[in-house]
Simulated scan of single mutants.
Amino acid sequence: MSSNGLNWYLCTNKSLLARAKAVIGSQWKVNSIATAFLFDEFYRQLETIAHKAVALQNVQNWLRRSTAVEPRERAKTWESILEPKEQFRLQRALKRLHDKHSTILIIGQHLY
């Protein structure tokens, strides 16, 4: 097992031992902006859907089919809560979006 895999495994086990009902994680580095979109929509889905796996699948489908318009509109609601450094990173990522391309493909394309 790689050190990243081991870290993910240990983190998951610690969360479950702390009595978390569920854990969402990744075994590789992920873009923080793409992750923010994913979790923002995930929690919106959980407001109407009780099953976490179904909510996550809906989010994945939303990310695949959305165009640049949706994340740009969504990002406007975050501006007041982001620190200046994060606002800059978000605006830079949004500038790379093209209206006809899937959001996840464009945001995930420039990971770091």
Score class of each variant (00 low, 15 high):
Lys100Ala: 11
Lys21Tyr: 08
Thr12Tyr: 03
Pro84Arg: 04
Phe39Gln: 00
Ala75Phe: 03
Trp28Gln: 09
Arg44Val: 07
Glu86Thr: 14
Asn61Phe: 08
Met1Ile: 12
Glu47Tyr: 11
Arg64His: 15
Gly25Tyr: 09
Val30Arg: 04
Lys76Trp: 05
Gln91Asn: 15
His101Lys: 09
Leu17Asp: 14
Gln109Ile: 01
Ala22Val: 01
Arg96Glu: 12
Ala50Cys: 04
Lys14Ile: 11
Tyr43Met: 03
Lys95Tyr: 10
Leu97Tyr: 04
Ser32Gln: 11
Leu6Ala: 12
Leu63Tyr: 03
Ile106Phe: 01
Ile49Met: 02
Ala68Asp: 05
Ile24Gly: 00
Ala36Phe: 01
Ser26His: 07
His110Cys: 01
Gln60Met: 15
Leu90Ser: 05
Gly108Pro: 03
Ser32Glu: 12
Glu41Pro: 05
Asn7Trp: 14
Ala50Arg: 07
Gln60Asp: 12
Gln27Phe: 12
Asn13Ala: 08
His101Trp: 14
Pro71Asn: 04
Gly25Asn: 05
Ala36Trp: 05
Asn13His: 15
Trp62Arg: 06
Val23Met: 05
Ala50Asn: 10
Tyr43Asp: 00
Val30Asn: 01
Arg92Pro: 02
Ala75Arg: 03
Glu73Asn: 11
Lys76Ile: 01
Glu79Ser: 05
Ser32Val: 09
Ala18Ser: 09
Asp40Tyr: 15
Gln109Leu: 08
Thr12Arg: 04
Lys52Ala: 14
Pro71Ser: 06
Ser26Lys: 02
Ser3Ala: 13
Phe42Ala: 04
Ala18Tyr: 05
Arg65Ala: 13
Thr48Phe: 14
Arg72Asp: 07
Ser66Asn: 03
Leu105Ser: 07
Val54Ala: 08
Gln91Ile: 06
Glu83Gly: 06
Val59Lys: 01
Arg19Met: 09
Ala93His: 07
Arg74Trp: 10
Arg19Glu: 15
Arg89Glu: 12
Glu41Ala: 07
Gly5Ser: 07
His51Tyr: 12
Ala18Gln: 02
Ile104Trp: 06
His101Ala: 08
Val59Glu: 03
Gln91Ala: 13
Ala34Ser: 12
Asn7Val: 12
Leu38Tyr: 11
Arg92Tyr: 13
Ser66Phe: 01
Arg89Ala: 13
Ser26Phe: 13
Gln27Trp: 10
Glu47Lys: 15
Ala50Ile: 05
Leu94Lys: 05
Ile81Thr: 13
Ala18Pro: 00
Ile49Glu: 13
Arg64Asn: 15
Gln109Tyr: 10
Arg65Asp: 12
Phe42Gln: 04
His98Leu: 12
Gln87Ser: 08
Ala93Gly: 06
Asn61Glu: 14
Thr67Ile: 02
Leu105Glu: 10
Arg92Met: 08
Ala36Arg: 00
Ser102His: 02
Ile33Cys: 04
Gly25His: 06
Gly108Arg: 01
Thr48Pro: 02
Glu83Gln: 11
Thr12Gln: 05
Thr67Val: 04
Ala18Gly: 03
Asn13Asp: 11
Thr77Glu: 07
Gly25Val: 06
Leu94Asn: 00
Ile24Glu: 05
Ala93Glu: 09
Lys29Val: 14
Cys11Tyr: 14
Leu17Val: 07
Gly5Val: 04
Trp62Cys: 03
Glu73Arg: 08
Ile33Trp: 02
Val54Gly: 00
Pro84Ala: 06
